[in-house]
Nucleic acid binder design. Structure first.
Lengths: 211, 211
DNA sequence: GTCTATAAAGTGATAGAC
DNA sequence: GTCTATCACTTTATAGAC
């Protein structure tokens, strides 16, 4: 019917696949379900992709890129590199910065739970395939680097230093977000999650001290 | 061929299904794969279970029961209820108790990574089904209760009290184990995981103080 | 009770008309 | 390039012989 470039068709199929995975899960993301969501014929799928696995690989690559930017703090909120702290400093300030960042993630999770559920499923899916496992690894390397950046920025902004290497605190932070995501997806307990965010902020802030 | 009671056959199929899920994933745990693993015919499956979903429900129920006991500390290590601390006390003792318990979990994970991968997959699977979702919720309620018990015991043993409600610290601990499990399954980075355990012990111990 | 054989539906992928 | 029609295979589940 409609003429599209192969690249446009691939990207449309990837986006449709993401919606299907989010709504119904990886197992139900069949080629037929995906082309129906994209409004294409089955043959168009195989014109754009050699196989379902090729699409899944591209899908995983796509969500990993998108996720990294989605969790990034608004650049307007961050001070320029190497600048001196502008607001209040000390342990309480560090704790507040952490609490604020965590709250933003929780809000993101509540607003689009299917998306985070899909991310977890896609990670598991990648872990089952030798070809895709490196993608999962790259993704988590990216998360760790991103968390390290955010933690360094928070320390600078609050005039603090970390008592442990920032990479280790970053791994802790990533583990915490994964864990709180699963916990919330399982019981959807908002008050418990808010309390958890407070507890996390306390615990992580205890790993810093005034510079 | 061999005569078995229906209950025996069901339990044999559940155990076979767990092996298949661990080795090849939930998606590959077809009825055929499961009966092959159990050394039965396909018809025997449907004699014992009405459907594949009925088996999966029973499998999830089974692993949840088993997991709770697997992570429990050796009763020989724990002092009797309400007893006064016997060893060293104070923040360092609390941190050491936490680090020890975390180390035991990490060892469990390293020794049987497929099992923990299967647990995560089964949780996701349960979250996709309205009938099985309550099972996931029960499982995590159980985890939280178990973690609260372990944390209370650690505080008693080290003569400490928690600065936050123990249920909140418990939720933190469960989130951390889930998160570190995913991180390790993704990159299998043992040194980073050991460092993470140290960092976790520091951060969580900071939530306690001497009684 | 346990088997073999098969039904019924779904899957990824392709052929061939246009 | 895009479609319909179909192939070859796998899936869950059942029928019916023994």
């Amino acid at each position: 019917m409609t003429r599209m470039t192969a690249a446009d068709r691939r990207s449309a199929l990837v986006l449709a696949a993401l919606r299907v995975v989010a709504d119904r899960g990886v197992a139900q993301a069949t080629t037929r379900a995906i082309v129906a969501e994209a409004g294409m014929s089955l043959a168009s799928f195989h014109y754009a992709f050699a196989s379902r696995d090729e699409l899944m690989t591209e899908l995983i690559r796509h969500v990993m890129r998108a996720e990294s930017t989605a969790v990034l703090p608004d650049p307007a909120d961050a001070p320029a590199d190497g600048q001196a702290p502008t607001g209040p400093t000390g342990p309480a300030a560090l704790r507040l910065l952490l609490r604020h960042g965590l709250g933003r993630y929780a809000e993101h999770l509540r607003q689009d739970p299917l998306r985070e559920k899909a991310m977890l499923e896609l990670t598991q899916y990648a872990l089952r395939s030798v070809e895709m496992q490196p993608l999962a690894r790259e993704q988590y390397d990216g998360y760790h680097a991103l968390a390290a950046l955010a933690l360094t920025s928070a320390a600078e902004q609050s005039g603090s230093v970390w008592l442990r290497p920032v990479d280790e605190v970053a791994r802790l932070l990533v583990a915490l977000t994964d864990g709180l995501t699963i916990a919330w997806l399982v019981d959807r307990d908002d008050p418990a999650t808010e309390a958890l965010l407070d507890t996390i902020a306390d615990a992580v802030a205890a790993l810093g001290r005034p510079a």
